[in-house]
Design a protein around this nucleic acid. Structure first.
Lengths: 207, 207
DNA sequence: CTCACTGTTGTACGGTTGTATAGTAAAACG
DNA sequence: CGTTTTACTATACAACCGTACAACAGTGAG
């Protein structure tokens, strides 16, 4: 009789790795069903674990949601602010922003859920404020360079705010109904708007 | 002894009026707690009725949500497209869009919930497509007039799309964290962007 | 090998969910 | 006044919710 090499009844991994898996599973659940799909049952089933692990690793479901937010924004920012990817043109900047994997359509429900939560949850609000400031700072710097080379005098923070808002709005509409707006057209509108805003001030029309 | 005028045990009103009340209560619940607050218990308590009425008047909770969407967008459009309010300037147009009562901060959760639902619910998607087309049509017409008077040659639908997206994005960010962006600044950024996009094409810089 | 540690499971719990349905009562009609 | 209609209430129900907790099992230290 062979030695009873019982298959392990569960996989035991490092807490950090398990947390990462649960966060990943949470994102999948949010993407699939919005905040209503963000349930302990769904998440643990998606992650292939039993129901107890969320409490064990995060303390509560809400704490997990906060971790999800930090993870998503953190990754997006990390990729965006890597110094070797400073955009050299408007086209590059727009492509870079839209190219962010977290701006794919499957993340619509994730962002909607997070936005709703940020507006209500003070802890998330603090986190958001910090991240948004970094994000805008980075984009403003690129815009400042573009403006200088074009001889336009603009407040780069204002333009960055415009750009970020426009991207958010275009992305949102494109997600909600793709028949109304394609990603390519959204990018194009974005580029044209940015070019117009960064155009050197035209002389007042002589009437 | 007076006749026993027993107080009526419940108020019996016309189905349309009752439906309107339930829709109103639904909006209040959505505003307060997002889609998670949109529960039969919450809604009926808010509306002051018993739990059975949603099924009776709408068939299901989901059908009620669709009715909520139709009601909100319908009212917003009705107000916007009243012919006697055609905006005469960029300022007026921006003020008009931002002045919509459904773009107040308390509607953040309502819109987030509806957007998430539109992206998933085909019936809502059809409704949205129709409403959005009307909305954009109306704004494009105003923009077309502005462009003509400024000697700018632009596709008014493109500019309308840009404006709508920009408003959505600015509004969203302003709702999520009011410390980052005030409503007045959002309006100002909006006006300036529109003015830039509608500026007559500048001659190429002579280098 | 033995023991302590802790990641993991499984279940139990009270509360909430949406809907179905039986029964009540208010209004409309003759 | 009596009858019919239907808006409305109230309850029942199975499914699901998040969390607590006791027991189990994999792992490394000694």
């Amino acid at each position: 009789m062979t030695k009873k090499t019982t298959a392990p009844k569960f996989e035991r991994i490092a807490p950090d790795a398990r947390r990462a898996r649960l966060i990943e599973a949470s994102i999948a659940c949010l993407a699939k069903g919005g905040i209503q799909g963000f349930t302990v049952d769904n998440i643990c089933h998606e992650a292939g674990t039993s129901r107890g692990l969320i409490t064990h690793h995060f303390g509560s479901k809400n704490a997990l949601l906060a971790a999800v937010y930090a993870s998503i924004y953190g990754k997006a920012l990390e990729k965006l602010t890597r110094s070797d990817t400073a955009p050299q043109s408007i086209d590059e900047l727009v492509d870079m922003i839209f190219g962010d994997s977290f701006l794919s359509r499957e993340y619509l429900n994730v962002w909607l859920a997070l936005w709703g939560e940020i507006a209500v949850n003070p802890a998330l609000q603090v986190e958001h404020r910090k991240n948004y400031a970094l994000y805008r700072e980075h984009i403003a710097r690129a815009i400042s360079a573009f403006a200088r080379s074009r001889g336009a005098t603009v407040d780069s923070y204002d333009v960055a705010t415009i750009l970020i808002s426009l991207v958010d709005g275009l992305w949102l509409e494109q997600c909600i109904d793709q028949s109304l707006l394609s990603l390519d057209r959204a990018k194009d509108l974005c580029r044209r708007t940015l070019a117009a805003v960064l155009a050197p001030q035209p002389a007042r029309r002589p009437t």
